[in-house]
Design a protein around this nucleic acid. Structure first.
Ligand code: SF4
Ligand code: SF4
Lengths: 159, 159
DNA sequence: TCAATCAGGACCGCAGCGGTCCGAATGGTT
DNA sequence: AACCATTCGGACCGCTGCGGTCCTGATTGA
């Protein structure tokens, strides 16, 4: 199936939960609040911390804290942090396919990849947090969301 | 990783190859032309035939033929045929997640899913064949380069 | 010093994917 | 009618990678 890993899904849930409250929050606490198994939450948080999406405070009364506000975290970043870089096929952006010499489609996926990448960069976690589904097509909603909006045309421009 | 299955990749290669020549073509023939293992090509073609993307001619001198021109086949169709429906998470469009009652993010992925779905519907195999996706030259997309303030989801949604 | 908490792995069961193979149906060819 | 080429539908299997658990340190506040 064309789906993203469950851990990525969990990561979004955890990040949004982190934003709901100031100060540090512990893994068990978040697990209880999100109904996600505790070890899994810990694993996700460790990965996110490694990628710089959250900062950690060790020791007693430690915990995790968002590194930047939700509005500055595009979904693409979360996906890249957990699932790895977005690469639809093996031959996009650095990947090497064993038949790339012979394959007539070599490199043809790049634009598609760019399109999806741009789309995922244009949606932040803040949007997902307080967005009602289908609101994306309403002009009123679209009007006031702009951050990182330049990425899409730029990606398109160099096609 | 966030990638589509190799079989889907192969399907695109096979479909484009089918379009390069009129009349029916056999699995071994296509396999030889695309450098993809023959049984795999056969499997892909069988799946595609089942989904109605290609038509099959049985018996001697049989083979496969495109059901519709490349320009009428969006990438989304190929993905849906091989990989199954596009569903980023378990809770989108009919899918049910075990924690959908408790999860605060339930349903929030739908817009993201729709955005990607729209993007993949806006690019046809003919576009990929010519390496310059027509979707990116559409007024709706190019206009945003000047208007500024446009974001990926909106541009994608208009495709 | 002790308890709480994160860090970084090792570890495992398992679904699903990539890939192969075979028998049966089908329709030309002779 | 007999034969052969080719597709069809499905069974089959090894293996990767994912979801999930657990353990052993390192770090910090009380
Ligand atoms: S499009 Fe061709 S070169 Fe690229 S990953 Fe697919 S088979 Fe390999
Ligand atoms: S967002 Fe929530 S309800 Fe939807 S699939 Fe993820 S965990 Fe389940």
């Amino acid at each position: 199936m064309f789906k993203l890993s469950k851990l990525t899904d969990y990561a979004v849930v955890v990040l949004v939960r982190l934003a709901r409250q100031d100060g540090v929050q512990t893994s068990p606490g978040i697990a209880a609040a999100t109904f996600i198994p505790e070890p899994t939450v810990a694993k996700v948080l460790k990965t996110l911390a490694g990628k710089g999406l959250v900062t950690s405070q060790r020791g007693a009364h430690g915990g995790y804290r968002l590194a930047r506000p939700l509005a500055a975290i595009p979904v693409a970043d979360v996906i890249a942090a957990i699932d790895g870089p977005i690469a639809l096929t093996a031959c996009v952006e650095g990947g090497s396919c064993e038949s790339e010499r012979l394959c007539p489609m070599h490199g043809r996926w790049d634009p598609v990849n760019e399109a999806i990448d741009a789309a995922l960069h244009g949606i932040t976690l803040a949007d997902m947090d307080h967005a009602i589904p289908r609101a994306f097509r309403e002009p009123a909603f679209v009007a006031h969301r702009d951050e990182s909006g330049a990425s899409a045309p730029e990606a398109v421009a160099r096609l």
